[in-house]
Design a protein around this nucleic acid. Structure first.
Lengths: 152, 152
DNA sequence: ACAAAGTCGAGAATCAATGTCGACATTTAT
DNA sequence: ATAAATGTCGACATTGATTCTCGACTTTGT
């Protein structure tokens, strides 16, 4: 299960992408994003900071400030966002490349059958999800997308 | 990430399968399984009950009692075990068949772009993991499997 | 009867998820 | 210069899940 936080992050990005698609270059305020995406404002603050740290959006401070996309939707990877918001994707800590962690009680990774079989599943899974971008989400709603339909 | 509980369940099943492969029909006691798989005994009690409720193993009570496999490894689905031990596999509650739950704040599932895109990922993922059985784990350790290598 | 086993509900300890809050920093308009 | 509108940040609260442990009970073979 992806977390609520991740859903909020995606909804925020969709809101920003929709705005950009309508040709508006001005940043959206946290409040506006919260309103349109149905996200608790004070929680969204923290989420947007994390998304910004992931390099996907930029913030402008002060009056007329807010957030805006700084990448094309085709260059915004869903799996990267998942890693940034929810943490490692791997089914086992010993299978994560960036967040590798030896299993506490493991004596030999090379012969661990649990690891071996989940490694294969994981590779196939990565092929699917690593190719997914925000653009795929934008296109998937064509002809009837509406942000309100994503309040959950 | 799969839970520690799931890892313990898999290690217990591997222990039982290895024993059966060696042609021993007697059930293994919780204590013996715990020892061989490196699982806390009192925790394992609860785990084995859940695995039993999933229909994969059977228990014998009283003296000389214990647990034994009641299915062939080829018929023991890893994804079913995951669902029994860790709960729904779906990335969103609204995508789970058996544990379907409407997202709290969702106004229209049909137009939700988050749902739509994760549904596609999920279907592909299911194809991979639904075909996986305990037998795949047994075979994956051929020529050098050892339970000790799976203490984590 | 006794001992060796599984069964079951309660609960402790820790950690993650989901927020809220107050104080502060930055920028722009007037 | 000041005020107002904004983002930033750390601390905290609440709730639920995870990972166990424990004690009491039940079942069965000898």
């Amino acid at each position: 299960m992806i977390t609520q936080k991740m859903k909020y992050a995606l909804k925020a990005l969709l809101t920003l992408a929709d705005e950009a698609a309508n040709g508006r270059p001005e940043p959206l305020t946290i409040e506006e994003i919260a309103k349109r995406s149905g996200t608790p404002k004070r929680f969204l603050e923290h989420i947007l900071l994390e998304v910004r740290n992931a390099g996907v959006i930029a913030s402008t401070r002060g009056r007329a400030g807010g957030y805006s996309l700084i990448k094309k939707p085709t260059d915004i990877s869903i799996s990267e966002l998942l890693r940034a918001i929810d943490g490692p994707i791997a089914p086992l800590p010993c299978l994560s490349r960036r967040a590798y962690q030896r299993c506490e009680d493991c004596t030999d990774e090379a012969t661990c059958r649990i690891r071996k079989v989940f490694a294969e599943v994981f590779w196939s899974y990565l092929l699917i999800i690593d190719s997914l971008t925000l653009e795929d989400m934008l296109r998937s709603g064509e002809a009837q997308q509406q942000v309100l339909g994503e309040k959950g």
